[in-house]
Design a protein around this nucleic acid. Structure first.
Length: 594
RNA sequence: GGUCCCAUAGCUCAGCUGGAUAGAGCACAGGUUUUCUAAACCUGCGGCCCUUGGUUCGAAUCCAAGUGGGACUACCA
């Protein structure tokens, strides 16, 4: 692909060297601001001292040099220390010609970088359904995977399911005690919701036991530890670990229900995985690694028999990696699984964890320990950390009661999309299945875009009213633009000729559009470097807004001059393709009509 | 005590590696359709870019300190 910056870079470098004997390797250009004429701007302030010229003279001289020595430079103007450079029409038209029939505009070939990345996301517990926090996690993980693929990396999407532990036993116990054999079929409930119901049930009964014990004179702490239900749940966990047949069977059945429920939610969200991991298989990993670490002297044994590492020199605290009774803590298995994965996939270069920012510290510790154990890939591990989703009333944490259930949210969005479409009177000419498809596309487009347009590391406010909005800076706004272009293209038929360079002089807004198309590749690359779908989301919004203005101001099909009409059709088609590509990076589909 | 994140319009957010007069959407007030989909377009309103210093030709952006908000700092996961 031709890069305007590269073409200019050499010439500017030569200009600086020949005119002022300045040698530099860092010539950077920026987009010319729209108040000024030009495509790219060179800021000349940095060179005035060495060149011993005023900014105006310097700009003038470099500009003249560029015009003489670079065929792509059409003209230039100088404002103070800013040299605004206009490239020729044929440069931009050539660019449009090279991409207009490409479906993969902006994307690198998969695995062209020979860099295999494992990206972990979702990672739910099997004791309750997914909520809004998981939604952000899933959308973010999926989107970043898409972006990294588009940057030419090979990506393995994984999901490690937290399918064991005391919390799972709580649901199991409550079901056994209060469930009367209820199943998703008899209860007419999604499996994950049914299991979640018993998790809540456990909590209620447990709290009652605690308050009873407190009434009878125990302290709250004692009561929490001595309540019969929690003791029973702990016993159940031991039985599970010992392989007790009845407990393991119940565990399998109930987890099966949950997986069925999750599969539906994942399908609705449009996310998927290349490889599943289950903690029931991995929770014992890491012990061997602890032994090796002890030998290497990275870890030490404490008086009570537990194993720890001292990270105080790195500004962190001491961290226990093995309990005094020899059992693993959470980080033990995290260390173990990381090591295991690099053994399992010898090509692996990087491991990315999509986990909320409340675990920033945990991952800092994890990566540091891996580094100290001597794994060279530890420096490549990355915690894709994202901020909490807050509701207008308060925080989005399950224990605080104000949860937004993922399935309910998706359903609500769907209904709003349906109502809105009907109100706008846009249902004519659609078959029923098409309408269902459209409502799914629009509702999920709105939800995904709403969440992904925000920089991942920032906490975000989820206002249900606003997220459901389909106007303005939203997913449906972009989808609508795509649909409108497609409608025009359908009316134009399949034959709309070619763009012949010499005959066309794009008007300012057309030129601007081509420049935005040109920037797509850079936006994808930037999004990949910063692991931020928000870069793509904001890029495609700008492109769309610009196109809408063009669409409003200029007629395409009614344009009388054939060459211009064809050019506009080609331009529109390419814009639609880039919109579609950009949205696919966000996991959002775009409709042919809406 | 320590580590980390955040602070830009009434609200939700862009402004990346320092550059020209700080941008959108929502909300509010108004306008545009005999013409390719008005889920659109246009106009107006709205700012001590948290504070104070520093770095320099130039700071919302970088650095330091402070203020305010949040997360973490378990032999929980």
């Amino acid at each position: 692909m031709i890069k305007a910056e590269d073409l200019l870079f050499n010439t500017v470098q030569k200009a600086l060297s020949e005119l002022y004997s300045i040698s530099t390797n860092t010539v950077t250009f920026q987009k010319t601001r729209k108040e000024f004429e030009g495509d790219l701007t060179l800021v000349t302030f940095p060179y005035i001292k060495e060149a011993k010229k005023s900014p105006e003279v310097l700009g003038q001289q470099i500009g003249e040099y560029l015009k003489k020595n670079n065929n792509d430079v059409l003209s230039f103007n100088v404002v103070k220390g800013f040299l605004n450079i206009s490239l020729t029409n044929s440069f931009w038209l050539n660019y449009l010609n090279t991409i207009k029939n490409l479906s993969s505009i902006g994307f690198q070939k998969e695995n062209s970088t020979k860099r295999t990345i494992m990206l972990e996301y979702s990672s739910p517990n099997t004791n309750k359904p997914l909520h809004l926090g998981h939604v952000r996690n899933n959308l973010l993980g999926y989107s970043v995977a898409q972006i990294l693929k588009a940057c030419g990396h090979k990506v393995i999407k994984t999901n490690i399911v937290n399918d064991r532990g005391i919390h799972i036993c709580k649901s199991m116990l409550a079901w056994r005690k209060f469930g009367n054999g209820e199943t998703p079929e008899t209860a007419h409930m999604k499996g994950d919701h049914l299991v979640g119901k018993y998790y809540v049930e456990f909590d209620r009964a447990y709290k009652k036991e605690i308050s009873d014990l407190v009434q009878s004179g125990k302290t709250k702490e004692e009561a929490e530890k001595q309540a019969p239900l929690i003791l029973e749940a702990q016993k159940m966990l031991q039985q599970w670990e010992a392989g007790n047949e009845e407990v393991v069977n119940l565990w399998k059945i109930m987890n099966g229900w949950v997986y069925e429920g999750f599969d539906k939610t994942y399908k609705n969200m449009g996310v998927d995985f290349d490889k599943m991991y289950y903690e029931s298989n991995t929770y014992l990993l890491g012990k061997e690694m602890v032994r090796e670490g002890l030998v290497k002297g990275v870890f030490y044994k404490k008086e009570n028999g537990s194993v720890a590492i001292d990270l105080t020199k790195d500004g962190l605290d001491e961290k226990v990696v093995l309990r005094s009774d020899g059992t693993s803590v959470y980080i033990t298995q995290d260390l173990g699984t990381a090591i295991e994965r690099f053994k399992e996939f010898p090509d692996l270069k990087q491991l990315i964890y999509t986990v909320g920012n409340e675990q920033d510290y945990h991952f800092k510790v994890l990566f540091l320990i891996l580094d100290k154990l001597g794994y060279s890939w530890a420096k490549e591990c990355y915690h894709l950390s994202y901020g909490m989703v807050e509701l207008p009333e308060g925080k989005m944490k399950s224990r605080e009661g104000t949860v937004v259930d993922a399935d309910e949210l998706i359903e609500e969005m769907y209904n709003t999309a349906k109502v809105t479409t009907e109100e706008l009177g846009k249902v004519e000419g659609f078959a029923n299945e098409e309408l269902d498809e459209l409502y799914k596309m629009v509702s999920m487009g709105a939800l995904k875009y709403f969440i992904l347009k925000v920089d991942p590391k920032k906490k975000m406010l989820f206002d249900p009213k606003e997220s459901i909005d389909f106007n303005g800076h939203t997913g449906p706004f972009i989808q609508y633009t795509h649909a409108r272009i497609k409608s025009v293209l359908r009316k134009a038929g399949t034959e709309y000729g070619n763009v012949t360079n010499s005959e066309i002089v794009p008007n300012p807004i057309e030129r601007e559009l081509i420049k935005w198309l040109y920037d797509f590749e850079a936006a994808v690359s930037e999004a990949g470097k910063s692991y931020s779908p928000a870069v793509v989301a904001n890029y495609v919004y700008e492109l769309t807004k610009l196109y809408n203005r063009f669409y409003h101001d200029h007629s395409i099909l009614k344009e009388e001059i054939e060459t211009i009409k064809n050019f506009r059709l080609q331009l529109s088609k390419t814009v639609a393709q880039v919109i579609s590509n950009a949205m696919s990076l966000l996991g959002i589909l775009v409709p042919e009509k809406m």
